[in-house]
Nucleic acid binder design. Structure first.
Length: 506
RNA sequence: CGGGGCGUAGCGCAGCCUGGCAGCGCGCCUGCUUUGGGAGCAGGAAGUCGCAGGUUCAAAUCCUGCCGCCCCGACCA
């Protein structure tokens, strides 16, 4: 009955943020590293979260007219070569398949045999192979717009990996659209970015800023890359989603042409947009505390866990029956269009059970014992409150109000994250202040520092690069909602017409 | 791929300097006692000490090479 630690996760965020992140994931039972370098196994509790995110996004995509399809994992190398910038951007991190067969050697070890005539790459993204299909499918303006999405895994051979945030293989969706006009493609680019913003803010309770990437940061081959950027609790930025206007670059590369109403032959205007399992990393680093992950109710793997207190043999059966009955009624409740997700944990292991669910981040824990049963009540704890902060509530009232409580947790998480973002965002005009903002007090073991600096930038790639080399700070985006305002570039002092967002980034 | 740190039971670690039975805490299993909050007692299972060589009567410990993980850089959703 003694408390082992004051926090369930060691080290704490303040002590060692990266290690804390790893431990949160381990403790939550969401995922683990696989034997394959840089890859992860997503366990049921983590995959349930992903499925909820997928469902919400998929519904939003379909509401805008997008349909799902599936394209191959393997892409001929020649396809990647079609767009020069695209090659430049992805060639370094492609996994390449060179053989199609294994044979045993003299030591009975399996070795690759059957060399392929043309090696295949494992998709790092599918613009080229989808472009090839679009070129064959699209003949006329009547075929447009073409609005497709695929849910898939992709592989990017990363040097440094971090579970959920950057893995060699990850799950994502990639939307690909073709339009008859430039404006329509641009509109689609912003429309999908807005879907991502809604996903982040309404479902994941992660406030984001939206904007455009600089030339140095944009997607290889894109005309314009737009993004949503969130602030993690270590005040670093995380790009949580991107939407690209590809101009006619990929249409020319893949030969996506159509006959217009005027009977002229035109190249299509394309977009692509994606979010990945990286969002899970963002969710963890936005909401979790020193007791583990905190799942926002809208996407939580489960909304509520029922914990029967099985104290005495003579009451156990009735407590279980009471618990089951509550579970049934809860499952009939509708929460934002889905049935409530209810878990029951009847393991008789004392307080450990409670802490397991804290570490798993379930929004509501409901303890149900003989006393509650006698009073026709339940004993409730919220994951957004202290573990000791619990209250008794009439069973019927709880069932009636659970959606309201979950919404309160959801909005509270968003508000808290928004406050954090605002507290650690500032306009900086003085170059010395800028440097100090991004320089830790203790360079040996850097403490949590920095944040988002809205500062002036002259627009030159040189200044952008200089800031990056000097402070490891990049321009996260040119925010859409920036004011027209003249100022002096934080690096060179030359004329600037508006602020951009600088931050250290994942 | 460069600089730094670390690989010992599922997790966290001690042991290594100075070679001599592979340990501790938590977790796990069994039994009893407990039970409104990370339980107590007793018993138990679990590790080719990251891998491969080398030195030695003897290697977790010393030497060489490799692999993996974490942090900091370059790259990136």
């Amino acid at each position: 009955m003694t408390k082992k630690n004051d926090t369930a996760i060691r080290p704490t965020r303040a002590e060692n943020y990266p290690e804390w992140y790893q431990q949160v994931i381990r403790a939550s039972d969401m995922a683990e590293l696989s034997p394959v370098r840089g890859c992860m196994v997503i366990k049921p509790w983590g995959y349930a979260l992903w499925e909820n995110m997928v469902r919400a996004l998929d519904d939003m995509f379909k509401a805008t007219g997008v349909r799902n399809a599936y394209f191959p994992l393997f892409i001929p190398i020649s396809f990647l070569e079609k767009e020069a910038e695209h090659v430049e951007g992805f060639a370094k991190e492609c996994a390449v398949v060179t053989h199609h067969k294994l044979e045993k050697d003299e030591n009975n070890r399996l070795v690759p045999a059957g060399k392929l005539n043309e090696p295949l790459i494992v998709r790092p993204t599918s613009e080229t192979i989808i472009g090839d299909a679009f070129a064959r499918w699209i003949k006329s303006y009547r075929d447009l717009p073409m609005l497709l999405n695929q849910w898939a895994n992709v592989v990017r051979w990363e040097m440094r990996t971090r579970i959920f945030l950057r893995t060699s293989e990850f799950l994502w969706q990639e939307g690909h659209t073709v339009h008859a006009t430039k404006q329509e493609a641009i509109d689609r680019t912003y429309m999908m970015l807005n879907v991502y913003k809604r996903m982040a803010e309404e479902y994941l309770a992660i406030p984001v800023i939206t904007g455009e990437k600089t030339v140095a940061e944009k997607f290889p081959g894109a005309e314009v890359t737009t993004c949503i950027e969130a602030m993690m609790q270590d005040r670093k930025a995380l790009q949580t989603g991107t939407s690209h206007f590809l101009g006619q670059n990929f249409a020319r590369a893949s030969g996506i042409r159509f006959q217009s109403a005027m009977e002229t032959e035109e190249y299509g205007w394309t977009t692509s947009w994606g979010v990945s399992t990286r969002m899970i990393g963002g969710l963890i680093m936005t909401h979790s505390d020193d007791n583990g992950i905190v799942m926002p109710p809208r996407v939580a793997s489960a909304h509520v866990v029922l914990l029967p207190i099985l104290k005495k043999k003579e009451t156990n059966d009735s407590v279980m029956a009471y618990t089951q009955a509550i579970a049934e009624r809860l499952r009939q409740q509708n929460y934002h269009g889905t049935p409530l997700r209810v878990e029951i944990d009847d393991r008789n292991i004392g307080g450990t059970r409670n802490w397991d669910w804290i570490k798993k981040g379930v929004p509501l824990r409901v303890e149900i014992g003989p006393r509650d049963m006698d009073a026709d009540s339940v004993f409730v704890s919220r994951r957004d409150r202290d573990p000791k902060d619990r209250f008794s509530i009439q069973k019927d009232e709880f069932i009636g109000k659970i959606a309201e409580i979950l919404d309160d947790i959801q909005s509270g998480l968003y508000e808290k994250a928004l406050c954090f973002l605002q507290e650690n965002t500032r306009d900086i005009d003085d170059p010395d202040e800028f440097s100090a903002f991004f320089t830790p007090q203790n360079p040996e073991e850097p403490e949590i520092h920095g944040g988002f600096a809205w500062s002036h930038w002259c627009g030159s790639a040189e200044c952008e690069k200089a800031v990056k080399e000097r402070l490891n700070v990049t321009i996260r985006c040119i925010p859409f909602d920036r004011k027209e305002e003249s100022g002096a570039c934080i690096q060179c002092g030359k004329e600037s017409r508006g602020r951009v967002v600088f931050a250290k980034a994942y």
